[in-house]
Design a protein around this nucleic acid. Structure first.
Length: 423
RNA sequence: GGGGGUGCGCCGGAGUUGGAGAGCCGGGCCAGACUGUAAAUCUGGUGUCUACGACUGAAUAGGUUCGAAUCCUAUCACCCCCA
């Protein structure tokens, strides 16, 4: 596999520095991508970067995952129109541990001369004091050069702290350290990182009198212009506690047709031939492509078992949708559904006494935020209990609604489904 | 340090010369219909509640007034000009 060709046909090649093709053809090269631990988990946005490292490794090169223990403490101004809120050291350390664990799943850290490495850039600064920094790092670039970077220019009007302004120095020095300590020649990333990355190649050129290279991928955008990686309910995380495997699977199934063309090439490890075959069928069977994508990614990010559960639940909830099939489900199937979708536990006595539908959905669970929302949903014919539409906000739910003596399925519209579990 | 301005719904805009605001337009978002769990289109909705009604609401806290988003005082945030 040729790394650059692979990126090219996947439409993942945005910018590259000259000479990189020749460098990669010489043999195994080491390259890295940095990840700042500003969130408790990686997202599918970060997954694109992991995918890039994966393809790099599959091409016979050595990937480095560089966790931003240092840079995360400072904050990258790229793509932000306002100053970031600093995270506490404890939070950053906690996030870093979690993200590092996640990243380990996607690359081969065990075998071969090109086995992946996981490093923390805090190690580069542990022994450094502020004077060392100013003399050894800060002297490399002029403020003029740094100010010409897009990430800084955009903030000149609205303001940028010295802290965030310095960020590119840290990232550039990272690259220099990796070059010296690990012979790392390439830095990759999203196209928004181009400025930071080229600061790094500049460092290596000036301080080491050596040549380093950069490759970036186009930032993934959605057909409707909204940011990739966010659903209406927020980020899509790789952590199953934050985004359940079912929700993760559903994210791909529900994706817009128009986005499929880029998604399928960005996210799967399928061969060019397989992808082209799927794309040919796409017009007739758009859902087949979405399923293929959802299946591969759910397996890779979670597991085969998680995919199985997510698919089962999806089938139960979307394929066979009438009341009879719901009633025919056995208790263990419902148990599975309750684990995968949002479920709420309530006291048995509550249901035995009979509870108002609005109270149940707001006070006793938090399916909806207010009773006004419950009324509006009922008015819009959106609410149902066990597949029976709710006609009035005065309706009550009692033990007759219990399936197998302990489950109630409540739906708000086609997509928002909840299970109430009685105990 | 001095002077001026702005601040209401998730966002953008319009409007309010002390006299009716849960309140205009657009976007977003939610739901319904149609579909394929997609898009487009059409329809309804988008502060809270014990709901044909009531309550809260114009940055925050006070004040003047029969009546305040509008006037006054203080505070906060942002913007502009001068130094």
């Amino acid at each position: 596999m040729d790394f650059l060709q692979e990126l090219a046909w996947r439409n993942m090649l945005h910018q590259q520095t000259p000479g990189i093709k020749e460098e990669l053809e010489k043999g195994m090269v080491t390259g890295y991508i940095g990840f700042d631990p500003t969130a408790p988990s990686l997202t599918i946005g970060n997954f694109v970067q992991l995918q890039l490292l994966k393809l790099f490794q599959l091409s016979g090169h050595q990937p480095i995952v560089l966790m931003g223990g240092a840079t995360g403490r400072v904050g990258d101004p790229s793509g932000k129109d306002a100053e970031r809120q600093l995270k506490s050291y404890e939070e950053i350390e906690h996030n870093l541990q979690f993200q590092a664990k996640q990243a380990r799943k996607f690359l081969d850290f065990e075998n071969g001369p090109n086995k992946a490495l996981l490093l923390n850039n805090y190690d580069f600064y542990r022994e450094m004091n502020v004077l060392d920094f100013l003399r050894n790092v800060g002297k490399t670039l002029t403020v003029n050069y740094m100010s010409s970077k897009e990430s800084v220019k955009k903030r000149i009007e609205t303001g940028i702290s010295f802290t965030e302004f310095s960020y590119q120095l840290l990232q550039a020095y990272d690259f220099q350290c990796l070059y010296q300590q690990y012979n790392c020649r390439i830095q990759m990333g999203g196209s928004d990182q181009w400025g930071n990355i080229t600061s790094g190649t500049e460092f290596i050129r000036k301080n080491l009198d050596a040549k380093a290279y950069a490759v970036t991928t186009p930032l993934l955008t959605k057909a409707d212009g909204t940011k990739f990686g966010k659903s209406e309910s927020g980020n899509i995380w790789l952590d199953p506690e934050l985004t359940s495997p079912y929700d993760f699977y559903q994210f791909w199934i529900r994706a817009s047709d128009a986005d499929m063309k880029s998604f399928i090439r960005y996210f799967t490890l399928k061969s060019k031939e397989e992808i082209e075959a799927l794309e040919t069928d796409f017009a007739d069977q758009p859902n087949k492509l979405k399923e293929a994508l959802a299946e591969e990614l759910t397996t890779r990010v979670h597991s085969a078992e998680a995919l199985e559960a997510a698919k089962n639940v999806s089938n139960l909830l979307f394929r066979k949708v009438n009341k009879d099939t719901l009633l025919s489900l056995d208790a263990s199937s419902l148990e599975t559904v309750a684990r995968e979708i949002k479920s709420f536990e309530v006291d048995r006595s509550l249901i035995e006494q009979g509870v108002n539908i609005g109270d149940l959905m707001t006070e006793h669970t938090n399916m909806l935020a207010s009773k006004g929302e419950v009324r509006r949903a009922i008015k819009g014919n959106a609410l149902s209990v066990n597949k029976d539409k709710i006609a009035s906000h005065e309706d009550r739910v009692n033990q007759e609604a219990l399936l197998h003596g302990r489950f109630i399925m409540i739906e708000n519209g086609k997509k928002n489904k909840y299970i109430v579990v009685v105990n």
